[in-house]
Design a protein around this nucleic acid. Structure first.
Length: 283
DNA sequence: ATGGCAATGTTTCATTGA
């Protein structure tokens, strides 16, 4: 789908592109799910978290055969992030960087790349375990450093997406009373999310009317998915300059219904990029 | 108040996730 955009005296084509995030909880186990999902949903960019793979085990060839080029940063057992780019539309990720220069960290939670005139920042925020623990303190420090890093306005505009491990508001929580003050919902975590919003980032999901009780994660236990006992903790945030370009944002619950699912569902945003932003977009 | 489910490597249990 194309439309013309008048920009000064120049008439530039606009191009729809889709960008998605999915915590797969082991790419080794979930590779068939990812491949099937990409066949059904051939998004331009897919950001993965919790790949839990050493780089030498990353399934680069299988994804390349599907038409996706990958940038990835992994480690054994824990964490691991990847950016998949559809070769025939957005090309190959460039200017790839791993981590936050302001926060030296052994844990592979952050990978960034230029694609389609965007700076794509794929983040797996720390879980935090429980309020008051060392892991919780690490989570807050990690986010503070991310905010500091992103506070410097970047060119090109940024899409910050991934598993934030924060439910920003009570409407993102199936049982706000039970979760009040708990990790993922505590006030200090929500303040950190608000700090990202204060930088100008816009939650793409909330730009649109959404179904009530829309969540992106459900516990494996207690039939949580069947009861829709979930949280919305996976997010797509865009730079203010990009907000008018966002045409939709949705959560795809289908993969959560499969056998051996990830506990997270993919979140997808569609952007209508002006010609100058979509310089790398072809096809 | 507790555990419940899933994945991993340290593998027949402990650790972590959210």
């Amino acid at each position: 789908m194309r439309e013309a955009v008048i920009l000064g005296a120049t008439r530039l084509p606009a191009q729809a592109m889709q960008i998605a995030t999915w915590n797969v909880n082991s790419l080794r186990v979930r590779l068939p799910h990812v491949i099937d999902w990409l066949r059904a949903n051939p998004v331009d960019i897919l950001c993965l978290q919790e790949t839990k793979l050493r780089d030498e085990h990353f399934p680069h060839a299988a994804l390349a055969a599907l038409g996706y080029e990958s940038a990835f940063a992994g480690q054994p057992t824990y964490n691991g992030v990847a950016i998949l780019a559809r070769r025939d539309t957005v090309g190959v990720p460039s200017s790839v960087s791993v981590g936050n220069p302001l926060f030296p960290d052994e844990q592979k939670r952050l990978i960034s790349a230029d694609l389609a005139g965007l700076r794509v920042v794929n983040a797996y925020f720390p879980n935090g375990q429980a309020v008051g623990t060392d892991k919780y303190a690490y989570k807050l420090r990690w986010i503070d450093a991310l905010v500091d890093w992103l506070a410097t306005p970047a060119t090109p505009p940024v899409v910050l997406l991934g598993d934030f491990n924060i439910a920003p508001e009570d409407r993102d929580v199936h049982d706000p009373n039970a979760w009040e003050g708990q990790v993922l919902c505590s006030a200090p975590e929500r303040e950190r999310f608000a700090n990202l919003i204060a930088l100008g980032f816009v939650d793409a999901f909330r730009l649109f009317e959404q179904p009530p009780k829309a969540y992106s994660w459900w516990d494996y236990r207690q039939l949580a998915f069947r009861r829709n006992a979930g949280l919305r903790i996976d997010h797509i945030l865009v730079s203010p300059a990009l907000a008018p370009s966002v045409r939709g944002c949705r959560i795809d619950r289908k993969p959560r219904k499969r056998e051996q699912p990830s506990d997270h569902a993919p979140v997808i945003a569609e952007l209508m990029l002006a010609g100058n932003e979509a310089g790398a977009v072809r096809g």
